[in-house]
């Protein structure tokens, strides 16, 4: 049960944190049209996160009360659990602290310039297109339904970020330098997507989760194909960062959550 919850949270946290990052571009896009494109994509991610948090809240509430109070290390969330109240979808993003978040490190990396934002999304979108294609056959009907609905969105995200990779890589000298720098810097965060967490392994055995490690050859092939068209080189660096799935994060996540959670922490239960 705990693995099922952690697995769902991992997916939800990925979607929320990347969605939040992309949302930071709102009003700051290089042109109006791309500003809107990016906020649309951001809202797709946050929509996926909502469905996943609803499911995660339900899974949490299924766990007996005395165990439920020991799942998280977040004081505010535990206070709510200890009060006997059932969790709602909003409690998980707003009342959990950084050390209870399970998103991959890639998603919390800063937006940087346009190239960094594109590269980060590209690594993520190619992965999640493959991932949701498998997850729609999950034995968890809820996850399967979320995957199926999300797949159409992710197909568009992948198209958007792939085209921008090509446009920047095969563009001017300036754009090529920038996108290659971004790729070189964020490459080290791409590997974690394929490293199976305990929750992922457990859910794979039950036919609920996806074998992320097995997606690597297809991901490599797609990335190689786009890089070739974009005239970009694949970084030689093989060493990969990891830890996000085990709740060990870079310093960036704390700042993201500070902004994201401020209102609910300052004015608990506030609605608008």
């Amino acid at each position: 049960m705990l693995d099922h919850l952690f697995y769902t949270l991992q997916l939800a946290d990925n979607a929320l944190i990347l969605g939040h990052r992309l949302g930071e571009w709102c009003g700051h896009g290089p042109v109006l049209e791309q500003d809107i494109a990016l906020t649309n994509i951001s809202l797709d991610h946050i929509g996926q996160a909502r469905s996943l948090y609803q499911h995660a809240a339900h899974l949490t509430n299924e766990i007996p009360q005395e165990q439920r109070a020991k799942i998280f290390q977040s004081v505010t969330l535990n206070n709510k659990i200890n009060s006997g109240e059932l969790l709602q979808e909003d409690d998980l993003p707003y009342l959990r602290d950084a050390w209870d978040f399970r998103n991959a490190l890639l998603t919390e990396q800063p937006n940087g310039d346009w190239a960094y934002t594109v590269a980060r999304s590209f690594f993520y979108d190619v992965f999640y297109f493959l991932y949701y294609t498998k997850l729609k056959d999950s034995k968890d009907a809820q996850l399967a339904a979320i995957a199926e609905k999300s797949l159409k969105e992710v197909a568009y995200h992948q198209r958007w970020s792939s085209e921008w990779m090509i446009r920047l890589g095969d563009g001017t000298e300036e754009s090529k330098t920038r996108i290659q720098n971004a790729v070189n810097d964020y490459w080290q965060y791409s590997g974690e997507l394929f490293v199976m967490s305990d929750a992922e392994n457990a859910m794979l055995k039950k036919g609920i989760g996806v074998d992320a490690a097995a997606l690597k050859p297809e991901w490599d092939a797609k990335v190689e194909a786009i890089f070739k068209e974009a005239t970009l080189s694949i970084p030689e660096e093989k060493w990969m960062q990891k830890g996000g799935k085990q709740c060990r994060h870079s310093e960036h996540l704390g700042f993201i959550l500070a902004e994201l959670q401020y209102m609910q922490r300052a004015y608990p239960g506030m609605e608008w």
């Binding site: 109006l32 049209e33 791309q34 809107i36 494109a37 649309n40 198209r159 958007w160 085209e163 446009r167």
Partner: peptide
Amino acid sequence: EMAIENARDVYTR
């Protein structure tokens, strides 16, 4: 191509 995608995002949301 970008014009169609931008149109999709700006005018068919």
